[in-house]
Amino acid sequence: MSDSKKEVQVTINGKQICVPSTLSVIQALWHAGYPRVQGVGCLEGVCGSCRVLVRRSDTQEVSMEMGCQTLVEEGMEVMFLVFPSPSQHTYTLEQIPNSWEVQTEFHKIFPEAQQCRNCHGCSVACPKGISVEKGVELAVKGRFKEAGDLFVECIMCDLCMTGCPEQIAPNRVGLFSRRVTAYFHARPSNLINRLEKIRTGELQIIKE
């Protein structure tokens, strides 16, 4: 018998269903005929919509994962988490007068960041395995490039935010770090030269 024919029992949002073992959690719900609209996105694990709580049959532990990336398993219990982003932080890059002021502005925008109590909850919660807490620590120290580099794979699922007891928005801290790095420091000469040539009209298009 091929693997695809093997069926497993899972409970999704309180509904017990029996589905082939080759399905993701979302596919399983659809397969069983249940509607699922909210909390579904790219289905490739990059949009952060389909956050689920997962408890596997052999453990008391509940982990947080992406529903489209989680394969069903026998006895698994799953629950979708649909909530709006709880972040209260607002800023614009233009409010930072120059690159000397980034750190000062950072602490004005994210005053809680330095309250980090090092509980590691954000890093544990991250479905992408990012060293979230380390990133916050680096940003607090003004090491924005290093901090931002840790968040390459961040999909803004907000699980680090809901998991933070100090209401730090670690993913937004990471994104801020990335944005200021590009905004203040990316000045590619090949791009700048090309812009200049287009501006002077040196490069024109001969249409078909």
């Binding site: 890059l93 994104l175 990335r178 790095t181 590009a182 000045r187 590619p188 000469s189 090949n190």
Partner: peptide, 16 residues
């Protein structure tokens, strides 16, 4: 995009 804070892969001299 860079002005919005988007990063691109750059070479050792900072070129795209």
């Amino acid at each position: 995009l860079i002005q919005q804070g988007m990063q691109f892969d750059l070479d050792e001299f900072g070129d795209l």
